[in-house]
Nucleic acid binder design. Structure first.
Lengths: 127, 127
DNA sequence: CGGGATCCAAGCAGATACTG
DNA sequence: CAGTATCTGCTTGGATCCCG
């Protein structure tokens, strides 16, 4: 989507496809972005190290997500032309400022995980 | 995945599939949740009103997302058995506390949209 | 080591038709 | 009005192979 529909959607009010929040959410909502930003919060890391930190991610998704983050200026990519190539990834300044809102979300998650789980169980039991 | 791998993943450190943040992100990252929560921040609304506020959403996705949010205890659903049925949706207490972290994310988006766009253009131009 | 390219399966989401 | 049900296309993402 966001192809032919995009044009017609652009008319609208808030909560629209062109809304900045929407743009960012499309990025951070992709399941891996937050994990990668989190993994890089401790400091820079190379490709294989990231792959180990973000357990469960495939090589394809790691590459793809990193490209997107690099494109958005959230992550920097540095190639060291050594014998076996070494590539370092790190948060940019913008990336570091993103940690705060993400942490807020994480704290909410931790604080409400119990409530959410309980609510889910209650919902599934009846109905 | 998360099937056979899940067991082996459970050993791990942070950034795992069972991590609370991950659970929440799977929910808010689904493209519509944040928009709906935002639309309900102004107060309760009925189905058709929500559909108008969150422009571009299909009836199916609105229903589906609302069910998920109701299950998570973030949104409440009240059926008024009147002549034409009237269904009111509103944020629960938990839902209201979620507005804050989401707003933080939104503010970051607005603050950095320019940087991100510029970075994207620069990235696309070269390379 | 750090990917790029390709193939393919599963799930997500839109359009449409029907219901209490 | 507020959905449910179904059919179907398209995207997402894993697996695999290959390259500098």
């Amino acid at each position: 989507m966001v192809t032919t529909q995009a044009a017609s959607v652009l008319r609208g009010s808030p909560y629209r496809a062109d809304c900045p929040t929407r743009r960012i959410l499309d990025r951070i909502g992709d399941r891996w972005t937050v994990l990668i930003v989190g993994a890089l919060s401790d400091g820079s890391a190379r490709f294989s190290e990231l792959r180990r930190r973000v357990e469960g991610i495939s090589q394809k998704m790691l590459t793809q997500t990193l490209r997107g983050l690099e494109r958005d200026g959230i992550v920097s990519r540095t190639v060291h032309p050594e014998v076996p190539v070494r590539v370092e990834y790190a948060l940019t300044e913008a990336g570091r400022t993103l940690r705060e809102p993400l942490r807020a979300l994480e704290e909410w998650s931790i604080a409400h995980l119990g409530d959410v789980s309980a609510s889910q169980k209650a919902y599934d039991r009846e109905d």
